[in-house]
Simulated assay, not measured.
Amino acid sequence: MEGLADGAGGGQSHLRWRQWALWTRTEAGGTSSKVVPEELDLVRSPGGAKLTRFLVDEGPASATEQVPQETWQGEVPQSVDALRAWLRSRTPGVDGPAGAAEAVHDLVTERVLSPGQRAAVLRLLAALPGMAVSGEVVDRAGRPGVAFSADSAAGGLPTRYTFIVDPVSGQLLGQEETLTESAGKLNVPVPSVIGYDAYLVAQQAP
């Protein structure tokens, strides 16, 4: 991966990703849950950052908002130990699957990573307790990849955290969270996917 062309640099970046999140509502009659899909398009330039949200499968409605400049400070480290420490400053639980999933999602939806930085992310994920290869898969955007998974109950319920990687470029294609043993008070079957992100575009202007 380190030998691939570096995509970082330049004054404008474009990130686009699709996410599915479990939305739960509790009323007198009980708890109802559904997955709400949306697509997000983030363009950052020296003049500011603009985020556009599109509802998926619910018509053409969209909403655009100005968002702050990057909340991560400094360059993304290319060594796994330095990256772990850098991520820990914002996500203390990065040493476990739940915290790492949160930290990596936040990172790849804010920054366009170079091959060396992507390699550091993959090494960090590979070092997580219980991480194992799940096998070859096709992600939610129809792209072939290799899935790696680890289980954790740090979020409150036993959950499997899965990361899908392009085996050629090392690009993180997506993440998935699946309840494995209990849904708690959520009105969903087990096993059940409760969150998914598909990373579609990561481009930096030359």
Rank of each mutant, 00 (worst) to 15 (best):
G29N: 07
A8F: 04
L22Y: 02
G10F: 04
W17I: 00
S13C: 08
V35M: 15
G30A: 07
L15A: 01
R16A: 14
T24P: 00
T26Y: 09
W23H: 10
W17E: 00
S32Q: 10
A5E: 14
Q12G: 04
G10S: 09
L4R: 02
G10W: 03
A8E: 06
T31H: 02
A5Q: 13
K34F: 10
T26D: 08
S32P: 01
W23V: 13
A28N: 13
A5G: 12
H14L: 14
W23M: 09
R16W: 04
G30K: 08
E27D: 12
L22R: 01
H14N: 07
D6S: 14
Q19D: 08
S32I: 04
G29C: 07
A5V: 13
L22M: 12
S33D: 11
R18H: 12
T26W: 07
L22W: 02
Q12T: 15
Q19W: 02
W17S: 00
Q19T: 10
G10Y: 03
R18D: 03
L4F: 02
R18F: 05
R16T: 14
T26M: 05
G10L: 09
G9R: 03
A21K: 08
A8K: 03
L22I: 09
T24N: 03
S13L: 05
G10Q: 06
T26N: 08
T31Q: 03
G7F: 01
L22V: 06
T24Q: 12
G11W: 10
L22C: 05
R25T: 15
S32C: 04
W20K: 06
G9Y: 02
L15S: 00
G7P: 01
Q19P: 01
G29V: 07
S33P: 01
G11C: 10
Q19V: 13
R25C: 12
T31A: 08
A5N: 11
H14R: 12
V35D: 01
W23I: 11
V35N: 03
G11T: 14
Q19A: 12
S33G: 06
H14W: 07
D6F: 11
L4H: 02
G7D: 04
S13G: 07
K34E: 13
A8V: 14
L4P: 01
G10M: 08
